[in-house]
Design a protein around this nucleic acid. Structure first.
Lengths: 200, 200
DNA sequence: GGTTCGATTGACTGGTCAGTCAACCAACCG
DNA sequence: CGGTTGGTTGACTGACCAGTCAATCGAACC
């Protein structure tokens, strides 16, 4: 079917340009022409590959979120203890940010934390991630490795909320972001949720 | 000076209408005429009291955020243990949501979690809240009531992130929201951050 | 009953942009 | 070559809406 792929994938080029522009200016204040310019492509071509400006963001989100979902499931299958599983989830998200901060900024700022406007469409997908994390907690409770007097759904929200807040802190320069900070963050996230602030 | 206050405060009327409309449609998709209609007031009057649509949201945010800051400081002075202090902070925010969910929805969705577009202006104010919470944690560490191997700034982000994520869950119907849920949430928030998920 | 002045009205304008579309081009094919 | 197909171009349009402003209202005061 796709016997003749163009030498450069313009569609990809547009998506990558969109990441940069959305990250820089935010979704609402980027014009479609900004994306086209950044991609070095004619205005109309954006509409050849995508039906609307929204769909560009949709695509970026879906691409990334499916990876996250896969990572959570992988963590659930791969690791032994629930603590390790949570660690793997936190690790994956932190690494995602380290690897492509602009994309993660767009995902979080424009979709995940914009549940009122854009994120609304994706609420079911987002919810699924919370549920997967809750399932990990629940199993931990059944095996006795986690206490049973905290609602798993609640724990899941706390855990995910903490992660996202951290990323937001990095995104907006509220907390330092270096390689060691990333490593520490992964550890802290797990320690905090599992052991709490009070000494044992 | 203000010897003759109009029988009904139109300015307040506009602000209250804005809360409802912003909560319903989101800031970006509400027209100034929507606010005027909801307030039962002429279009132009909005501009008599506010210099722009942005300023309406500004005002709503500032009103509320200053209360939050006061509550945090009050908690810091009032309570004895750092645990109680965190409990008071969580309690205040949860109560704020219970008392006026629409306003809190607007604050969180349109400002706090919209750090890229609108919230950018208010980042310094928002940051101040994180810092106050971090200070509570720090004192707890000094007194030995909290462990010292977790960065206070990090703990603060985790705690606040968890709270906000919870509210988001209520706002978007991801988790149940009843009076008992609110009460439980306050407790869970403190227990989770202080004791962690693992049994003691 | 006239004057003043702030509150109130809503029609209008200017600018912005998402999305359309007709034309252009280049590769391949018969 | 002439023709077909699909990627590519960018000028144009229609809708939308924030913010302006000149006109009106009405209370208080002389």
């Amino acid at each position: 079917m796709a016997s003749k792929a163009p030498p450069i994938d313009k569609r990809r080029q547009i998506l990558d340009a969109a990441i940069r522009v959305f990250a820089r200016q935010g979704f609402h204040s980027t014009r479609v022409s900004d994306i086209a310019d950044e991609a070095g492509v004619a205005y109309g071509l954006v509409y050849h590959y995508f039906s609307s400006k929204d769909e560009v963001l949709n695509e970026l989100f879906s691409e990334r979120w499916s990876l996250l979902m896969a990572a959570i499931e992988e963590a659930d299958r791969g690791a032994d203890s629930p603590r390790e599983k949570l660690g793997a989830v936190a690790g994956f998200i932190v690494e995602s940010y380290r690897h492509d901060p602009e994309l993660m900024k767009v995902i979080i700022v424009e979709v995940t934390r914009a549940a009122n406007s854009f994120g609304r469409t994706h609420l079911p997908e987002i919810r699924r991630a919370y549920e997967s994390i809750a399932r990990i907690v629940e199993e931990g409770q059944k095996s006795g490795e986690f206490r049973s007097d905290i609602d798993p759904a609640f724990a899941s929200m706390s855990f995910y909320g903490a992660i996202e807040q951290l990323l937001s802190g990095w995104i907006f320069d509220l907390i330092p972001a270096s390689d060691t900070d990333y490593e520490q963050a992964k550890e802290f996230l797990v320690t905090t949720i599992c052991e709490g602030l009070e000494p044992r």
